[in-house]
Design a protein around this nucleic acid. Structure first.
Lengths: 236, 236
DNA sequence: CATATAACGGAGCGTTTCGCTCCGCAACGG
DNA sequence: CCGTTGCGGAGCGAAACGCTCCGTTATATG
């Protein structure tokens, strides 16, 4: 019995492994999309499959935890953005943060994992924060007038994956990765400038609705990727 | 030998099937990335697998043909852009065209198929055309000064896939597809505006080099997706 | 040293998916 | 009738996948 006095060294290793798993999962998801395999995640984390399954009972559970943490990171970034006195810098910093930690890489798992109540709650909170960020930028006159929070969210997802960068990573071309990352940064800068209020021509069509985000997360039973091997059979 | 007089009716059907296959391949690639399966392509084209393999001997051959056609489309779009008297409209139209026909969806197969000499030649031609398009826009002062042709190419690839749109398509949410497509158009408009010369702040870092494009297409034997079942064994 | 405990890595099981082959069938021409 | 030509898809061997199970290794105590 350690009684909680001092962490056993193996317990510290377990914690490091958990963090490595979550980071690896995000990276593999960004590259392989919906087909990301647990074996690839474990390998990338430098951890045995056994350890992964000791921490998470199923692939779905791992992805749910990842999604929850991603929502947390999003909300923290939004709060940091609101804490910035400059409305534009706050919004731009938020977008950059979300792109940086690859918020969008979880998109491919939408519809294939069950959305917990905790996740919905965090998502709703993030919606409020983003709405505030966007509203403040509009009031300050620094954001082009017809840009909506949904536009911003979609832009984050669009920029959240860098095809070239991810592919070079999976190919192990470490010599080109820095250049590709810089190239990606340039695209982000271009897109952010496109959001500025200097552009007065209205955006095409009607503003997109929230359903584009919410409905794709509705669990559809035929979505195969994460858990074809159902643990808990139809219970109720 | 029909000698080219009149196509037999079955031959016309074969041609329609070929076109359907190529279109389906592009769509499936956009959604499933490197893991796109021939069965999915054939099914989406409404064609039997047998017909696919009568036209193309391997999956690799299909993808090579697709890539070649994609390069043709790119070059035609660039020529149309140069034919436009307005330098900005020409460049923007080129970008829109490439995004529209999903030029970027072939990215995931890079490194997994052999690049033919014909493909390299067409690619080189496209490089020249794009350089001319960009140079002309710079001379007219409508494109922000430090944007390079590689920036433009990467932007096309970045915008070429719409995560939300593709996912809704695969989920069969036809009711939301129009809205998602419109949302994607808004992002394109934003990004294009970000390219305009009204923005004078320099882009971060050094301009990206061509190697980001060329080197990823170098065939690496461990890239699994398209033809694990090698047809022609090492015939060196 | 022996023993107990706890976290580790990965071989391997059963299943699914994949690239591709093969063959029976339908549509035309004589 | 037969011959030709293109069609669709069942099914084969191989690979990948989610997950289980077990032998190994590291620490703690005598």
């Amino acid at each position: 019995m350690t009684d909680g006095r001092r962490r056993a060294p193996r317990q510290a290793e377990a914690e490091r492994n958990d963090r490595a798993l979550l980071r690896a999962a995000r990276e593999v998801l960004a590259v392989d999309g919906a087909h990301a395999s647990v074996a690839a995640i474990a390998a990338r984390a430098g951890v045995g499959i056994g350890s992964l399954y000791r921490r998470y009972r199923t692939k779905e559970e791992l992805f749910q935890r990842l999604a929850t943490l991603s929502l947390d990171e999003t909300n923290e970034a939004a709060e940091r953005g609101l804490a910035d006195d400059d409305p534009w810098a706050g919004l731009a910093g938020f977008i950059r943060s979300c792109v940086e930690f690859r918020q969008g890489s979880l998109g491919p798992v939408a519809g294939s994992i069950e959305v917990t109540e905790e996740m919905w709650a965090k998502y709703a909170r993030g919606e409020e924060l983003l709405a505030a960020l966007v509203a403040r930028a509009h009031e300050a006159g620094v954001l082009r007038p017809d840009v909506t929070p949904v536009d911003v969210s979609l832009l984050i997802e669009q920029l959240g994956t860098s095809p070239v960068l991810d592919q070079l990573r999976v190919q192990g071309r470490d010599d080109l990765i820095a250049e590709a990352a810089n190239a990606h940064d340039r695209l982000i800068a271009i897109a952010l400038d496109g959001l500025r209020a200097v552009h007065t021509r209205p955006l095409p069509g009607d503003p997109p609705g929230n359903r584009l985000f919410t409905e794709r997360w509705a669990l559809r039973p035929d979505a195969c990727p994460p858990s074809p091997r159902r643990r808990r059979s139809a219970s109720g």
